[in-house]
């Protein structure tokens, strides 16, 4: 079996102390295969965002460990985590993805600029073309629609060829047409470029673009599903809530 792109082993995250302690993750062990599009689903407070933050080197665990490929993140210093994020991880958030003072092109090449690297021009053109934002490159975020902004964010995530891209409700703020377009592009990135993507969502339709869905409730993995459709997902959610 090939090395998973990311995995969590006995991951536990507790916020606060004593009486006010909240267990967000409760001994979660899970693996994510490379070249796969995985959705993490669950109701609010299920720990799905926490799981993603810990996998993405944004937050640390109370107990357990997290691996990105062969690299263990647990115990890494800030500098190493920072470089890891810079070189191996891409992000697409629900909102506030872009630096307002920079143009679309500058936002896309920002991670490379931070790392002091040159952007691969051919790859950049390819990504921009697939996402259909070639005519928006000199615009500021404030001059673009929400869908366009999210596509720029996706382009930024892809541009540095990360080992893995994390999405946090990337289509959450978009109308259904723009959302469908964005998720279509993400699907394409997995199929065409073999990109690994892990996305948190609570929307069944969004989740149906994934290859695999992991269901979380109360900080634990309660179920999973392969090759989902929107109907199958909705049915499963109903069963889980029952």
């Amino acid at each position: 079996m090939t090395t998973p792109a990311a995995r969590a082993v006995g991951a536990t995250k507790i916020y606060g102390e004593g009486d006010t302690a909240v267990t967000a993750l409760d001994d979660v062990t899970v693996e994510f295969a490379p070249g796969q599009f995985t959705a993490i689903m669950g109701p609010s407070g299920s720990g799905k965002s926490t799981l993603m933050h810990c996998l993405a080197a944004l937050d640390d665990l109370t107990a357990g460990s997290v691996f990105l490929g062969d690299t263990e993140l647990t115990g890494m210093g800030d500098r190493q985590l920072t470089e890891l994020r810079r070189d191996k991880i891409g992000f697409i958030f629900q909102s506030f993805n872009l630096i307002p003072t920079l143009t679309a092109r500058e936002n896309i090449t920002l991670p490379a600029a931070i790392a002091g690297r040159k952007t691969d021009a051919e790859w950049f053109d390819q990504v921009v073309e697939i996402l259909g934002i070639g005519d928006r490159l000199s615009h500021r975020p404030s001059e673009m629609s929400g869908g366009q902004q999210q596509r720029v964010a996706a382009a930024r995530a892809l541009a540095s060829r990360p080992e893995i891209i994390f999405g946090d409700e990337p289509s959450g703020n978009l109308d259904s047409k723009s959302g469908a377009e964005l998720l279509g592009f993400m699907r394409q990135a997995v199929d065409v470029f073999g990109q690994t993507i892990i996305m948190v969502t609570h929307d069944a339709t969004s989740a149906s673009y994934a290859d695999r869905i992991v269901f979380l409730a109360d900080g634990r993995i309660v179920d999973e599903m392969f090759d989902p459709t929107a109907e199958k997902v909705l049915d499963r959610i109903k069963t889980l809530e029952a």
Partner: peptide
């Protein structure tokens, strides 16, 4: 703060 945090997410070091 959020803008600076975004830089950090994208891999900017504290020094940067």
């Amino acid at each position: 703060t959020r803008e600076l945090a975004l830089f950090r997410v994208l891999g900017a070091t504290k020094q940067q």
